[in-house]
Design a protein around this nucleic acid. Structure first.
Lengths: 144, 144
DNA sequence: CTGTAAACTGAAATTGAATATCAAGAGCAT
DNA sequence: ATGCTCTTGATATTCAATTTCAGTTTACAG
């Protein structure tokens, strides 16, 4: 699974004439080892802590590449930090975002997906992707 | 309709102990006169062009107030500019966004709303708002 | 193996949106 | 009007993200 993703990114790199570098390997490894929704800063700190001496700009640049390659997806919350999540082929999940603690719970709902298709069909619309985010307070924060 | 919105904002202001000022009136007028998804900068320029001498900071502050009052909603696209859209009372619409011509069709679906509530309940989550965007090609563009 | 052209990196500078500061000004109750 | 508090706006500041650019590394042809 991780190997597949590495291969997928290598293929992308090849097709774009990009070169294979130590930095990209490290960043890809760290990204793949993380869980959902990591911010660039978090990833940068994770990498920094392993003393690989990779710069800020490179992390930003490389994550943009991951997004472009289809490996990752940019997500924008309302805290001014861009986050990246893993794109899992053939799977789509949506988000419950807590606006107090910024935690994110993922969910998937077949029926909603089906309704989306119906709505799109009704408008002659061809779906490429979609995004659904529910904002509010998570189970913990709503009690505070 | 516009008058109702003004009244709604005044009520909100009153309940929060906010004062009625020339600047807020102007910004509200301009905001209400715009169509969907205006960025703060665009709104600021619109206001500036009418020589009312309202500052940058005030526009930002006031739009945040509008959002807080329920009059407007913050939306984040991927261009680093925060935009605001109109919130229409008792209506929630989602978006079909055409990635070719950038047209936006709005829709509403009761069943999806209901499913969202169920999912939230299942996670002990308290919904404050939500956002759903379906990306793809509109009826016109998909034929090109 | 080289040599070389092009891509890559990273420290530092820069950009740009958004917010904070704070003195001057304005709304509002009495 | 008086006084209290909210509001404003020029400016400074913050902070994520991008650009710059000189030095480095990669890929590849010869």
């Amino acid at each position: 699974m991780i190997l597949e993703k590495k291969k997928a990114f290598n293929d992308f790199a090849l097709s774009k004439g990009l070169r294979s570098t130590r930095q990209r390997d490290v960043i890809l490894d760290v990204f793949l080892s993380t869980h959902q929704h990591i911010s660039v800063e978090e990833l940068y700190l994770k990498i920094k802590s392993s003393n690989t001496g990779i710069g800020h700009a490179t992390v930003y640049r490389t994550l943009k590449l991951f997004a472009e390659s289809g490996l990752a997806r940019e997500i924008l919350l309302h805290d001014g930090q861009t986050r990246y999540e893993h794109v899992i082929a053939g799977e789509h999940h949506d988000h419950l975002v807590c606006t107090k603690c910024n935690s994110i719970v993922e969910f998937e709902d077949e029926t909603i997906e089906k309704l989306q298709k119906e709505i799109a069909a009704r408008h002659g619309f061809l779906i490429k992707s979609h995004k659904m985010e529910i904002y509010g307070y998570c189970a913990v924060c709503k009690q505070l």
